[in-house]
Write a protein that binds this DNA or RNA. Sequence first.
DNA 1: ATCGATCTTGAATGGTAATCAAGAGACGGT
DNA 2: ACCGTCTCTTGATTACCATTCAAGATCGAT
Lengths: 188, 188
Amino acid sequence: MARNRRPVPKEQKRDELLAAAAQLLVLDGYEATSMSRLAQHAGVAPNTLYWYFHDKDELLVAVADRYLQALLREHASLADRPLADQFLWLIERLRPVKHLVATVHNRVAVSASVREWHTGFHQSFENLFERQLAGPLAAEHRTAEFAAATFILEGAITHGIDEATTGQLCKITADRLHRVAEAKMNAI
Amino acid sequence: MARNRRPVPKEQKRDELLAAAAQLLVLDGYEATSMSRLAQHAGVAPNTLYWYFHDKDELLVAVADRYLQALLREHASLADRPLADQFLWLIERLRPVKHLVATVHNRVAVSASVREWHTGFHQSFENLFERQLAGPLAAEHRTAEFAAATFILEGAITHGIDEATTGQLCKITADRLHRVAEAKMNAI
DNA sequence: ATCGATCTTGAATGGTAATCAAGAGACGGT
DNA sequence: ACCGTCTCTTGATTACCATTCAAGATCGAT
């Protein structure tokens, strides 16, 4: 048990800092937002951020995860919509943070915490695919097909694609996954 | 005509700086390589880099373009190999610079020069598709199909995918493009 | 020999992420 | 009621960064 407790529980304050950080990071991006400015916007000294987060990368990961978890919670209520619609919804929801998605991919090579979160991010996508497809995929196709679907969605998020093309990409990806799940491999 | 000429022509020296910069950037990545270190490794003062390149971003673009142009020149001799093989070759050639690919995507939002080069980068991919497919695609499918293919290839480059999966992704992408080009849209 | 353009550099500026050591605040044990 | 200890907060500092400025060096043309 915690021996000492502050008036504001640690988890809560951490979440407040996260909420404040999310605003600035979404607005201006990772590299254009300094720890000083994040602290200032949260009404706290820069060093306080380093008490709750080891790194700027760890802060990025926490913000990204906060966003992702909220997204997945919201997504749960759409689970019976057509898969292409779910993809479209996901893309439109992730577009506002597309620069952060790009930053995550960029910092995978640099930061261990980002690297770890990134694999979880992909895992979430694959879990979603698996859940939606009812039948399990043949093991030999699963990895590549899921990777292809994930890459298309990631590309649609991070690149500024027009609405019509985005819709087509969602349809292409969903159709393909359904076909593979039905194991009509000769038609693929 | 140039009124004054240095013992070493400007273009040549620029290219030497580029070659030196490429080594370090490929090895350590964009953010971990400072302009000072790039200058030091090229045997020149940091400011000299700013005479030949306006920005660190412009230097990145120049290095990336140097790499891409060499790649496309080499690729020309593979034009009669199966499309999937060409994709595999491209991916294996771009993997060593995957962090730079990620950096380019990350800095598209920040730097105008990177943004401009990035569209050219995608254009090169689409040109390659078009050239390889013999018949032209239906206009209504072209954009989305090319985008999907590009995103899969980009994903395969930037993510650390194992060899088997990479091969499958190449095959999936190539097959799909061929099918679409043959306009068997009912089977897609 | 000189002029002007091209190229190079040392020094400085304003910013950055991160660290360190000192402090303030709350609680449990006494 | 005091005290020590743990939690949290901060000011000061460090080392580095991209970029700019003004001054210098070097060359070709006149």
